[in-house]
């Protein structure tokens, strides 16, 4: 049971964060920060779950937004059915959340079973094609999904456990819970033996297969978990906006998620979260001065890719490692850290 230690630590950290966020909700007087953070939780889960595929398994999915949207739609369509809400009463929101999680997981499983057979660019294109197919389906089934107008008329969210999703603070606390739960799941996966296997697949799939690992099955599993967690992100956004839109499944959302990961740092667990915050910042700040947010984003991407050549958090970590390396006189420890870095480089 030597694995228990990092697991417990991760869970403890999540609990501490949850308490801190609750305190924040209680003391913060306004609504702006809480709503902004709630929005960041949603995109945070999208990129963190995609990071499990891109960063840890080496599967570049161009269609991850499909699962994000699927979560939002399942949640919304469930709660927009009056009979179901009447039947479940106060338990409607938790049940809808669970259903969105399972439904999206199932959807990701099916797509994963088909896509995981391919590698690299073909995998990327196939995930993209499924995403486009989902958008056509959402837009086609107007009577169920509202077509291009999305789920209109608001999503009823009955109170549960004393939480009312119309209230900013209550909504924030529930979203924070979902967010931390989602991040914890991904953290536990990366810490577990499954996570180790995923990294092996990423680094060399053929050799991993030689070791007797069924890499196909492992990839499908990662794809399913990532999809389900992304669906949870969609649930948060559906709670916040009281709606769901076909744009959520668009290629632009997937593309931006990939960029966010690269911006924040591909090789650090929390890199994508840094990316989400920086991305939001670029967007909001440039919007104050100009409507040319795209230009600003484009220049920022080129800077990160061509100058830093790695994400922000990766860059900071490398910088700190380099500085520490200079300070330490102990040859042995320097050699050790160098070896560690080489291994890391080789891994990437």
């Amino acid at each position: 049971m030597n694995l228990a230690h990092p697991f417990v630590r991760a869970a403890g950290l999540a609990l501490v964060c949850f308490v801190l966020l609750i305190v924040l909700a209680l003391v913060y007087p306004g609504t702006w920060l809480l709503d902004t953070l709630t929005g960041l939780f949603a995109s945070g889960l999208l990129v963190m779950s995609l990071h499990l595929l891109v960063g840890y398994t080496g599967l570049v999915s161009f269609g991850h937004a499909a699962y994000f949207a699927s979560g939002g739609y399942i949640f919304g369509m469930f709660l927009q059915t009056p009979d179901i809400v009447a039947a479940f009463g106060a338990w409607s929101v938790p049940v809808a959340t669970l259903l969105a999680l399972l439904g999206t997981g199932l959807f990701a499983l099916v797509v994963g079973l088909i896509c995981a057979r391919l590698s690299e660019i073909y995998f990327a294109f196939l995930t993209l094609a499924f995403q486009m197919l989902l958008v056509s389906v959402i837009q086609g089934l107007v009577q169920y999904t509202g077509g291009d107008q999305g789920l209109m008329g608001g999503i009823p969210r009955p109170e549960f456990l004393g939480l009312d999703m119309v209230q900013v603070k209550d909504r924030f606390v529930f979203s924070a819970f979902l967010f931390l739960a989602g991040v914890l799941v991904i953290r536990l996966v990366t810490l577990s033996s499954l996570g180790a296997t995923l990294r092996m697949v990423r680094d060399n799939e053929v050799r991993t297969a030689f070791l007797g690992v069924n890499t196909y099955r492992v990839k499908v599993l990662a794809f399913t978990i990532a999809g389900a967690v992304a669906g949870l992100g969609g649930v948060i956004l559906a709670i916040l906006t009281s709606a769901a839109y076909p744009e959520w499944a668009g290629w632009a959302v997937s593309g931006e998620a990939i960029f966010t990961i690269m911006l924040g740092g591909l090789h650090s667990f929390y890199g994508p979260l840094v990316g989400v915050v920086v991305m939001r910042f670029i967007n909001d700040v440039t919007l104050i001065y100009t409507t040319h947010t795209d230009l600003a984003k484009g220049v920022a991407i080129l800077f990160v890719v061509l100058v830093l050549r790695r994400g922000i958090l990766d860059w900071i970590i490398d910088l700190r490692a380099a500085r520490r390396g200079r300070k330490e006189d102990d040859n042995v420890s320097r050699a050790l850290s160098k070896a560690g870095k080489e291994a890391e480089d080789a891994a990437s």
């Binding site: 990939i258 040319h292 795209d294 484009g298 061509l306």
Partner: peptide
Amino acid sequence: AISRVYKENLLMQLLVCYAFVLICDDAVK
């Protein structure tokens, strides 16, 4: 731009192109 990422993986190439599209659209505007 692109020549600097010939040896990089697909992701880097995608990003450079994505950035270029964003810049081009705004420049045209």
